[in-house]
Structures are given as C-alpha cells and as structure tokens.
Amino acid sequence: MDTTLSAQIVYQRPQSLTEATMHYCPGCTHGIAHRLIAEVMDELGIRERTIGVAPVGCSVFAYNYFDCDFVEAAHGRAPAMATGIKRLLPDRVVFTYQGDGDLASIGMGEIVHAAGRGENISVFFINNAIYGMTSGQMAPTTLPGQKTTSSPQGRDVETMGYPLRMAELLSNLDGAGYVVRRSLHDPKNIRMAKKAIRLAFETQLRGLGFSMVELLSTCSTNWGLSPLESLKWLEEHMIPYYPIGDFKVAEPLKELKV
C-alpha cells in the first residue's frame, strides 16, 4: 500500500511578485492589487515581456515588488512614459500603476490623451479618494463632505469642485478598448477585479486599444479608520459615488471567457 502523501499547492506567491516585503500600511489594498496583477501576468505567461511604469504616490516603490522590468515615472506622467516604451517596443506588454492624485489630478492630460490615442497600454488606477503618500490631502476623487488634511471641514463642492469619475470619463473616448471599475473591499469583488485585470491585458495583447481598470481601494491610515472599518466605508460611501461596472468593453472582448 502506497503511503506517500502527494502535496498539492493551492496557494503560493505568484512568480511575477518578488520576495520583497511590501511597505504598505496595514489595511491598505495596494498589496491585493499588486498580487492580482502578478497572478494575471503568471497566467498569461507575460512576465518576461512586461514592462511596468510606477507612479509617484504610495505605490512609488511598486517596481520593488513586481519581478519584471520597470521604470519610475514623474508624477502623473506614467501614461506618457508608457507610450514612449510601447511605441519603441510594440510587442512588449506595458502597464502603468497609478493613484488618484497621479492619474486624475496632475496627470489628467497624459491619461486622457493616452486613452484618446488608443494607446495599447494597460492602466491600473487605484482610487482611494485621498492622497496617501503626502499623508491625507484632498484628491480629485475625494467625496463631497469628506474630511482630509487639506479639506478639514470636509470637501465643499462650492469651492473645491466635484470628484472626478475617471472610468466614466475615459470610456467616452473612441480610443478606449476596455474601461471598467472594480472594488477590492471583499472576496467577491476581488475576484471580479482579477478578471478585469486579465481582460485589460487581453485588450492590450489583442491590440484593441487603451485599457484601464479603476480599483476602489482603502487608505486606513489617512481615513483614520481600522482596516475593517475602511472596507465598510469603501462599500458604503465610495461605491454609491463610484459605481462598479463596465463602461467600455470592445466587441471582441465580450466573447472572451476568462
């Protein structure tokens, strides 16, 4: 009788992630987003031909965690830098990883034009409604009434304007092939987010134009909430303003089962 037990690995670090310990705060969803992207890179077998572009913000050190070639952009300029790389190396997979200050504030020009050109890059947009790295200032995605260190009385839309819904905005551009919003607040939504990340890379691999997955994320430290409270706050406050959904899905993607 054979008594050897065969071990079956059901969960392990994706090859596309390095061994480095992440610097993100407890409760932060950056780690989940990183892992999902890395898992998809493994599944598609694209690690060795993928080039990432890191932003300025909390994920400025993203290049430490992905085991692929990486460059570090100036604040907001990741889509332009990714464009330069993709135009020189069209058969490589190029993605940017950007926060809300980076993408929706200082980098608004670069992201809109990258989408408008149908630039064949994938963008992973972390929307946590606040500036994390500079410790909690108002972001272009900060909700009306939300208190931050630069809107201490709460965001007053009369003087500070309204939050920007980037997925909706970019989905209106003809160059966009795949633009969706997902959330990282519970397992079901995390699984949906992973599928969307997969479809964003599939969009690029098929040459269908610009792809972006907006990921609703938490910032426990700067929201002043515990990790659990943060997940609840995201669900109760962010999702009503930033609905989860598919805003642009190019026809060939609709038939794709992932």
């Binding site: 100036a74 300029r77 332009a80 990714a82 790389i85």
Partner: peptide
C-alpha cells in the same frame, strides 16, 4: 499632446 508629454514619452523611449 504637449511638451510635457513629449519629454516623458522621450524618457520612456530612452529607457529602452
């Protein structure tokens, strides 16, 4: 779309 974008595209391209 601007010189700001042009120089950053150049930056990315130079990295190759």
């Amino acid at each position: 779309e601007s010189e700001v974008a042009a120089i950053n595209m150049l930056y990315g391209a130079a990295c190759t």
